[in-house]
Computed example of a mutant assay.
Amino acid sequence: MFNNAINAYQTIQNEGLSDRETEARVLTQAARRLIICQREWAQPNLRERLGDALQYNQRIWTIFQTEMLEETNPLPLEIKRNILKLSQMVDRRTMDTLTEPEPEKLDLLIRINENVAAGLRGSVTGPVGQF
């Protein structure tokens, strides 16, 4: 699953998009996967799809964590700290949702992804779920 997140990231980069747009698109893709799980909560193979969606999302945030810890990262220290705090929140909510699945627990992860993606695009947009 880690390779899927990296492959998606690299595929989008190869399309000629900026790093920020690439990050926004993979976050949006992760949010959509979580939204679909939420909408199809009663479907028979939910556990597997939910696990895949959560793992995909967490891998993206793990990549962000790694980038924020790089000494060569040019972002201001405060932004790096905020992203690390968000990634810790994503980690905790992911583990909580895997342990005790409830569709409402996905709301926080979806909102974080949507808001960060909007910020990366330099815009405030409506929820990803409205597609």
Rank of each mutant, 00 (worst) to 15 (best):
Q13H: 06
N14T: 10
E15K: 10
E15M: 14
E15V: 05
L17R: 15
D19S: 11
R20A: 00
R20D: 00
E21G: 03
E21R: 06
E21F: 01
R25T: 10
R25N: 13
V26D: 05
L27C: 05
T28E: 13
T28D: 09
T28V: 11
Q29T: 07
A31C: 05
A31K: 02
A31G: 07
L34W: 05
L34T: 03
L34S: 04
C37L: 05
C37G: 06
Q38D: 08
Q38S: 10
Q38C: 04
R39V: 04
R39I: 03
R39D: 14
E40T: 14
W41K: 01
W41C: 00
W41S: 01
A42W: 12
A42H: 14
Q43S: 12
Q43I: 05
Q43K: 15
P44R: 13
P44I: 13
N45Y: 14
N45M: 13
L46T: 10
L46D: 09
R47F: 09
E48N: 13
R49I: 06
G51E: 07
A53D: 06
A53M: 04
L54T: 03
N57C: 11
N57P: 07
N57V: 04
Q58K: 15
Q58D: 10
Q58Y: 15
Q58F: 09
I60T: 03
W61M: 02
W61E: 00
I63F: 05
I63G: 09
I63W: 00
F64G: 03
F64R: 10
F64T: 06
M68V: 02
E70W: 10
E71R: 11
E71C: 09
E71G: 12
T72H: 07
N73Y: 02
L75V: 01
L75H: 07
L77Q: 07
L77E: 00
E78R: 12
E78F: 05
I79V: 13
I79Y: 01
K80Y: 03
K80F: 04
K80A: 06
R81S: 11
N82K: 11
I83A: 09
L84S: 03
S87L: 01
S87D: 04
Q88W: 09
Q88A: 13
M89W: 10
D91L: 11
D91G: 12
D91Y: 08
R92E: 11
R93Q: 14
R93A: 13
T94V: 12
M95V: 11
M95E: 09
T97C: 13
L98R: 15
T99S: 11
T99Q: 14
E100N: 15
E100Q: 15
E100C: 09
P101M: 03
P101S: 02
E102Q: 15
E102M: 12
P103S: 06
P103Q: 09
E104S: 12
K105D: 12
L106G: 02
L106R: 07
L106Q: 04
D107I: 08
L108C: 02
R111H: 06
I112L: 12
N113L: 05
E114W: 07
N115R: 14
N115C: 11
V116E: 02
V116M: 06
A117W: 00
A117G: 07
A118K: 08
G119Y: 00
L120G: 01
L120M: 07
L120D: 03
R121E: 05
R121K: 12
G122E: 01
G122W: 00
S123I: 15
V124C: 08
T125K: 15
G126C: 13
P127G: 10
